[in-house]
Nucleic acid binder design. Sequence first.
DNA 1: TTGTACGCGTTATCAC
DNA 2: GTGATAACGCGTACAA
Lengths: 348, 348
Amino acid sequence: MSTIRDVAKLAEVSTATVSRVINSPDRVSTKTRNRVNQAMKACNYKYNALARGFVTKKSRTIGLIVPAITNPIFAESTRGVQDLANNSGYQVILGNSYYQYDKEEKLLKVFRERQVEGLVITTTNVKGKVLKNLLDDGFPFVLLYSTVRKGPISNVGVDNFLGGYRATEHLIHLNHRSIAMLAGEFHFTDRSFHRWHGYKRCLKAHRIPYRSDLILQTQYSLASGRDGVKSLLSRKNPPTAIFCSNDFLAIGAIEGARELGLRVPADLSIVGFDDIEIASFMTPSLSTIRQPAYRMGELGAEILLNQIKNNFSGAVHKILETSLVIRDSTVKAPVRKKWIYEAKTISG
Amino acid sequence: MSTIRDVAKLAEVSTATVSRVINSPDRVSTKTRNRVNQAMKACNYKYNALARGFVTKKSRTIGLIVPAITNPIFAESTRGVQDLANNSGYQVILGNSYYQYDKEEKLLKVFRERQVEGLVITTTNVKGKVLKNLLDDGFPFVLLYSTVRKGPISNVGVDNFLGGYRATEHLIHLNHRSIAMLAGEFHFTDRSFHRWHGYKRCLKAHRIPYRSDLILQTQYSLASGRDGVKSLLSRKNPPTAIFCSNDFLAIGAIEGARELGLRVPADLSIVGFDDIEIASFMTPSLSTIRQPAYRMGELGAEILLNQIKNNFSGAVHKILETSLVIRDSTVKAPVRKKWIYEAKTISG
DNA sequence: TTGTACGCGTTATCAC
DNA sequence: GTGATAACGCGTACAA
């Protein structure tokens, strides 16, 4: 592999001139520039961006940590991060934490050793010491899918509380009174935790008693959704509707209900969270809370790159809007079940 | 940011010793090792993997190019690549080609400048000059989802021809005689092209005339599947079954049929290709050709890393097995339509 | 077991 | 407009 030194020798110029031809061609006379360009061709010279990064201390690389790239919502935001970063001359190293704190920690360490200039993280633990370390070091990073409104950490996300509230409210407006929640484990994702709070608050606002036996925390996966719904429906006074804290759980839940011989939405209404593209292609299509994932990725990268450029000029908190997308997986509560519920309430 | 020089000074040893503590701790006495380790803590020393790569000429990085990370099949193989690479101390830079040759070319250039040690590519153009250049330079790379059985290029994929054949055969065994194919554009993906060949061959083997008006090439997306099925069904002598060259198209097609008021599978059978996880969670669940995506990713990375280690010791061609997964989106052809078809054939 | 000295490919800072 | 040369942080002969 030839270097600028080889090129310089061949073109009979100094390495400095070759470097100039590469980085600021206008500062070199046309004549020598042409000679250098020819020499580069002749040598089959290939620019070494690593060596450049080494001296300029700019790797032009950022790290991106997602829980699992196989969840389309993260694939979509990843695309946003990549597109924006690439357009600014940055490359993206990708890692999956699989919702495991120690994996996240490990990735962070490796990425920093690799001299990434900053990080975009969908974290497993907002309170963890890994983030604190980053802060202490003044290392640029942005949290994705996070909702903190203040504090020293930059983040871009949606109002998960509000999203959970809206999803629940939608079901209540459809006369559901026995509404379960199939949630990602609060321990691993504060997103789910906040959505649960929105759910609870909404119940309260409508004077519907909160039933902890209608909450099931589980992993974020299709299979967990399928199994989870079976558990919820086997409990006494089963729900007529379920709010799932992401679309994977919701899609899994629809399948689980089907396996139990129930029809969605006739026998059971289901609302999800995310609005992954495929949600509108399901049968029934999925009612869900839409998150602007691609835009979130873009914004996260943009904020990070700004912080890198301006040496961390203060934390930025972007809360994007969610919206309720009403499709076919939610309908009015079956009258009979509603009656049973009311009878119980009155007698209790 | 402190360097090994700072650590060396503090620990009162040479930089060489610090380096040894990092890379071969057993070659350093316990006493000095401890002193050095303490000094590293005191300095808040962070290892610079880039500088190391610079001197050893090993970046411990590979590039991965996929058409679109938002297709779950690519997300899954990406996971395989990452997991295996990470376990071998390699990191992965990810890029989307969006099925565009020029983007693929651009990414390749950038990745090579970044000194990636090798590439895993799901290419848009097997015959393109970018791959030829890679070969000429003796640069390690592996093609994913590719099916070449010989030649100088390493690849791991499935037998797309056979997959297409099996999908078609399944429909024929169900008495379908009017079978359309909704395909990814041959120009952008030879996978789709080979599946089409399998489809044609199977038709021929069963003496079913090939009808070019039953072929629709389109983009690989849910929306294209939805729109494509409407086009196919609006043609005269419409099909009773459709083979879609990936699951996205198939899922889109099911929705499109539904919008036309047709039921799948009662009115129209649909078989896909990939077996993305969600395929078994659809209603109806999707009959499809299963590809071992995660394993392909793992294998691709393994082969690449071996080539890197052994200085390209000959091309490897891995053809993994596909299997037909029969679910609910395919059933026996409606008797009436079959009769119409036969009447036509006899009269013609 | 430990230290010295050099080199990796590039950019940046001076000179000219 | 161009050239000489010192960094950058680390690994690695080779010497001690």
